[in-house]
């Protein structure tokens, strides 16, 4: 396959991770005050900002509004400085449009849209630095922003990539370096608690025999990410809650 081995004989990847290890994930909810919900997420060097507006009245073309559900509007954009080559257009090119559609598909699966008829939810995602796994980072950040906005979700929606090193070993969370050297990348967006796959995409082909183990790896990655996100959400709630005295007005009243 490729000349460079993605995973060395001692079981370390090029950046020192093992096959099953995610990159470091750091995230924060509520980074902006203007939108209804926002989040910042770092997955390795990939850095993403997400902002959620809504649910609000359908703006612009009113005829789009639906009587039984909210419409979800996603916009994906990449900062011009996010890649090594300076990008010409931050949004609106073919790739960004495709990303927007995929993002919408994944989020639609988790948002309880039926609760908000005649309304609209806007999700804006901006990639600040792309270092592989852009789509998963966007999905994960959008999930956090939706939670921050207080929009009811069925459960977390998480995404993760997986690939096949040396055409044999499945590995999770592919970095940019690994993407360009090597084999096919499988991107999976899933509802990790119920184990439902909501989006699956492959960059190249590999033999069908490999699919189960690579998919397994990706789903395991989604579950791991969910744990991390969950922890971040709890911490955030704790922070917000404790600073406001858990919204406990009765105690104030008593004193």
């Amino acid at each position: 396959m490729s000349r460079k081995e993605l995973i060395s004989e001692i079981g370390l990847r090029l950046d020192g991770r093992r096959a099953h290890e995610l990159r470091r994930i750091r995230c924060k909810l509520g980074v902006f005050t203007q939108p209804d919900g926002s989040a910042y997420l770092e997955q390795g060097l990939t850095k993403v900002l997400a902002a959620v507006y809504g649910p609000h009245q359908v703006r612009g073309n009113r005829t789009k509004a639906q009587h039984d559900s909210a419409i979800v509007n996603c916009q994906f954009s990449m900062a011009v400085f996010s890649t090594t080559d300076r990008k010409k257009r931050p949004r609106g090119d073919r790739k960004s449009t495709e990303m927007s559609i995929h993002l919408r598909q994944a989020l639609l699966a988790a948002i309880k849209v039926e609760l908000y008829p005649w309304s609209q939810i806007d999700v804006y995602v901006e990639v600040l630095h792309a270092d592989g796994g852009v789509y998963p980072a966007c999905v994960n950040a959008a999930t956090l922003a939706l939670i921050d906005a207080g929009i009811p979700l069925k459960e977390y929606v998480c995404a993760c990539t997986a690939s096949l090193a040396n055409n044999d070993v499945p590995m999770v969370d592919i970095s940019h370096q690994e993407e360009i050297i090597g084999g096919p990348t499988l991107t999976v967006a899933a509802l990790p608690m119920s184990g439902k796959v909501v989006l699956m995409e492959m960059s190249q082909r590999f033999h069908l025999d490999h699919l189960p183990k690579v998919l397994d790896k990706a789903l395991q990655g989604c579950k791991d990410i969910k744990t991390i996100l969950d922890e971040a959400v709890r911490r955030h709630v704790e922070d917000v809650g404790s600073s406001s005295g858990w919204g406990n007005t009765s105690e104030k009243a008593r004193t």
């Binding site: 020192g16 990159r23 470091r24 060097l45 090594t84 080559d85 270092d131 970095s175 370096q177």
Partner: peptide, 26 residues
């Protein structure tokens, strides 16, 4: 378990580009 050390590499593909890669120490 993971510590990150990023380092900067300059690559020449026609023009000078800045590459940043992660390097995990274990």
């Amino acid at each position: 378990m993971l510590t990150t050390k990023s380092f900067i590499k300059k690559n020449k593909i026609g023009n000078v580009l800045k590459n940043i890669r992660e390097h995990y120490l274990r």
